[in-house]
Structures are given as structure tokens and as C-alpha cells.
């Protein structure tokens, strides 16, 4: 069923490619569809995935992934509200994309080989680097994993975290005791009760664990990164124009941060651009939109609506939010992170 859908989509994409020789202004089938519909169909969650897709009592969505959906909607349609958020579970996200219920998956989706090759997905550049971190009790005074010599680590049983911790600690000769639990609730309870000194896991999960603690100040996330999982934005395979837009959207958000362009000062900088590339980025001189099949002021609209990458991060999961997740590898390369903009020529 899914396979045949993939084939149909792929065939349609190829036919479209053959019939219309690639022109600079052709944005590809997905974007054309989004523009005709007047809204972007993006993923949210069945419930709240804290920090990334949260829903409040009024049914209003917020979070890092939701902001990314808004950025993409603004880039394509010029309006952050031109967005329909479809709640899908982790398991539903791939079939929902294949069947056309959603246009794009922005849902902390790890870039793995089987998904990339067997599920018919096409990934953007990573928009979030998912770290495996350690959350410790602050009263231990630990700042590095080495300080946890001999400590007890709570770990989710049967996950890759078990192996990641064993490898990391083994390679550094740090002895530790692994206490494994099947369920997230039991893990958290054991940490809060002090049965374990530390909890190892996916960084954002740890941030939410700390936020939900009876005394959030009593817990600290160490800077050390045990392993990384790159999270990408996934679209249906074969629509290169759409992937281009997503990649350049990411790039524009990062370029804005690198050049100090924020939601607050974007108008001033557009009126008085410091360099030729910033001038192009904000559409003060033409080029950035036409080549993607969008308007020239898409990046300006986007930054005006949601801010740059750093602002989105701080607002949803970082220092400006309740979770206080350190930027870590999600910083720009110039600040010790792994993120960088592409070259806008």
C-alpha cells in the first residue's frame, strides 16, 4: 500500500520533471499544492511532547517544532497563521506523510538509514542535534561525567542509551552502576527519590524531567554529550524543490543569527544592510526568492514572524523557556556548535 503510494508519487514527480523542464520559478508539486490550499499541513503531537510540541488548555500549540512549522508556513505563504497542525503519534507520522495528510514532518525525527532509504523519505539538513546527556542531582557538585565515579545511573531499559553510556564510561575508565527501568515514570521517580545520582537520556527528555521535578533547582544537566542524533525535517521523496525551500529556510534562520538579525531589529537592518549577503537575504536586493519559486521577502517575513534560530531555541526549549536546555551542539559553529548557514551568493 505504502510502497505503491511511494511509486505513484515518485512516478508523478518524474513525469512532472519531464513535462516541465526545470525552470528557476518552478517550486515543485508540494509547494504548488500548499500555495493553492493557502495553508501548510504540519505535524503536531497526540498530547504534549514537552518543549517541542505542547498544547495548552485552549488548544493552542507551542514548542520548537511548532515554531519551525510557523517559519516554513511564513516562508512559503508569508503568514505564520497559514498553518494547520495535524496531531499525529510517533508511529503515525510516516504513513500520514505518504498518504498526503501532512505536507512535512517536523517532529524530532532522527535521520536514520532505514527511514531515509526504505520509508521513502527525503531529509533536510539537520535542524536539531539531539544529544544524549546526563542529568545529575545538583547537591553532588558534579560538573563532568568523571565526577560521577562510582555513582548510580538510571537508564531506560532496552534503549540505545544503555549501550551509549556503557561505551562512553568504559572508554574513560569511569566505573558506574546502571539501574535500568522499563518506564519513563519509574525512571523519573527513582531519580527524584535519590535512588540514582544521575539520569542518562535524550537531552530534551532530561530537560522536561528536571522541569517536572519537585525541586527543579536540585538538578543540573551536564555539558558533556555522550552521543548525538541528528534530527531532520522529512518530506516525501522526489520533491527536490520543497527540500530546497526547507534547507534554505533553515539556512536563513541561522544566517540571521550569525549576523545578529533578530525579530526586533530586522526592519532597521533591512533598511540599512551591513553587507551584500544580508541585503540579499532580506530581499533588499533581488534573488533569494525567485530561485526557490517564492517571493523575495520570504526570509524577511519569516524572521519578522518567528525570529532567528537562536531566538526560537531560547523561547521554546532554551534559557527563555522553563526547560533551560543548554544550546550545546545546537549553537552556531562559531560558538562551538554544529550548525552553520549555507553560502548565499
Amino acid at each position: 500500500m505504502i510502497k505503491s503510494t511511494i511509486k505513484t508519487v515518485a512516478a508523478a514527480a518524474m513525469m512532472a520533471g519531464l513535462a516541465l523542464p526545470a525552470s528557476a520559478a518552478d517550486p515543485g508539486p508540494t509547494i504548488t499544492q500548499i500555495q493553492e490550499r493557502g495553508s501548510l499541513l504540519c505535524t503536531s503531537h497526540n498530547g504534549s511532547y514537552l518543549g517541542f510540541a505542547e498544547v495548552d488548555d485552549d488548544g493552542k500549540w507551542s514548542g520548537f517544532d511548532i515554531e519551525m512549522c510557523k517559519a516554513l508556513a511564513t516562508a512559503i505563504l508569508g503568514n505564520p497563521e497559514a498553518l494547520q497542525l495535524i496531531p499525529v503519534s510517533w508511529a503515525q507520522r510516516f504513513p500520514a506523510l505518504q498518504s498526503g495528510d501532512i505536507d512535512v514532518i517536523i517532529k524530532v525525527t532522527g535521520w536514520t538509514m532505514s527511514r531515509d532509504t526504505e520509508l521513502g523519505l527525503q531529509y533536510s539538513r539537520p535542524y536539531f542535534i539531539g544529544p544524549t546527556n546526563i542529568l545529575v542531582r545538583s547537591d553532588l557538585g558534579a560538573t563532568t561525567p568523571e565526577d560521577l565515579e562510582g555513582g548510580v545511573f538510571c537508564i531506560n531499559a532496552g534503549t540505545s542509551i544503555e549501550r551509549i553510556v556503557a561505551d562512553y564510561m568504559g572508554a574513560r575508565g569511569i566505573t558506574y552502576e546502571a539501574l535500568n527501568f522499563e518506564k519513563a515514570e519509574e525512571l523519573r521517580a527513582a531519580l527524584y527519590a535519590g535512588r540514582c545520582d544521575a539520569l542518562a537520556g535524550f537531552g530534551p527528555f532530561l530537560a522536561a524531567t528536571r522541569f517536572n521535578a519537585p525541586d527543579p533547582e536540585g538538578f543540573t544537566i551536564l555539558d558533556a554529550v555522550l552521543a548525538l542524533e541528528p534530527e531532520g525535517i522529512a518530506a516525501r521523496e522526489g520533491d527536490d524543490g520543497f527540500i530546497d525551500v526547507i534547507n534554505w529556510m533553515m539556512s536563513a534562520l541561522l544566517m540571521a543569527e550569525e549576523n545578529g538579525i533578530t525579530q526586533a531589529n530586522v526592519d532597521d537592518i533591512r533598511a540599512n544592510p551591513p553587507s551584500a549577503s544580508v541585503e540579499r537575504l532580506l530581499g533588499a536586493s533581488p534573488g533569494v526568492g525567485e530561485r526557490l519559486g517564492l517571493s523575495d521577502d520570504w526570509a524577511y517575513n519569516m524572521i519578522k514572524a518567528v525570529g532567528n534560530y537562536g531566538e526560537i531555541y531560547d523561547r521554546t526549549v532554551g534559557e527563555g523557556s522553563v526547560y533551560k536546555l543548554p544550546r550545546g551542539k545546537n549553537h552556531l559553529w562559531s560558538n562551538g556548535g554544529l550548525l552553520y548557514p549555507l553560502v548565499l551568493d
Binding site: A157, N180, E182, E186
Partner: peptide
């Protein structure tokens, strides 16, 4: 409760 008995080891 995280006691590594035979069942838990098999399950993991």
C-alpha cells in the same frame, strides 16, 4: 522496580 531478574534480562 528495576531488579534484573531472568524476565527483565530476557526482556531487555
Amino acid at each position: 522496580i528495576g531488579y534484573p531478574d531472568y524476565f527483565m534480562v530476557v526482556s531487555t
